[in-house]
């Protein structure tokens, strides 16, 4: 362990998370690495009221895509990604970086290749309702009123710095 590692260990404001890269949210408003899956919500291209819940399971790379009312996505057949899953994979890489997504899904992505191309799973429906409710919970943060109360713990959170 060198001295900069030691300084990082002992720095109460050590930076742990990388800076978030801004991404367009219109197509894929929600992406997360949780519950053993890369999962998220993809807006339907044709119907503003409809969203698709898409996920890729870590390890097995099982693919799942359906509407929030549990109607299977017609574009997901066999082992190839539907356009929703492709968007999900692209936006996850944009948000978290390829390394973190690949590590979570336990997939080797050869240099110059894409995450979607490196996946070898097949269709394996996962529960859409749970992911959709996590998306609603995510959106609910925006409904919480701002607070003027003391939150001194925020001093530990300095953001990740600007992406230059």
């Amino acid at each position: 362990m060198d001295s900069s590692d030691e300084a990082w260990r002992l720095d109460p404001l050590a930076r742990v998370l990388p800076a978030v890269r801004p991404r367009k949210l219109a197509k894929v408003p929600f992406v997360e690495l949780a519950e053993g899956r890369l999962q998220g919500v993809v807006s339907s291209g044709s119907d503003i009221e409809r969203v698709y819940v898409s996920s890729i399971t870590a390890g097995s790379h099982g693919l799942s895509c359906s509407t929030n009312n549990n109607r299977p996505c017609g574009g997901l057949n066999g082992g190839s990604l539907c356009k929703h899953l492709q968007s999900l994979a692209e936006e996850a890489v944009q948000q978290y970086g390829l390394d973190r997504v690949a590590r979570y899904l336990k997939v080797e992505v050869p240099e110059g290749s894409s995450l979607a191309a490196a996946l070898s799973g097949s269709r394996d429906p996962a529960p859409a309702a749970a992911v959709f409710s996590r998306f609603l919970r995510h959106l609910a943060y925006l409904e919480a009123p701002a607070s003027t109360a003391a939150e001194p713990e925020m001093q530990w959170f300095r953001g990740a710095g600007a992406v230059v």
């Binding site: 919480a144 925020m154 600007a162």
Partner: peptide, 24 residues
């Protein structure tokens, strides 16, 4: 010192966060 704290999502950062504070 004075301050306000707003809830947000991880996808909102940078100059966009000011828009969460339009109540002030």
């Amino acid at each position: 010192r004075t301050g306000v704290t707003a809830a947000k999502t991880d996808t909102i950062s940078g100059p966009a966060v000011w828009r969460l504070l339009t109540a002030f």
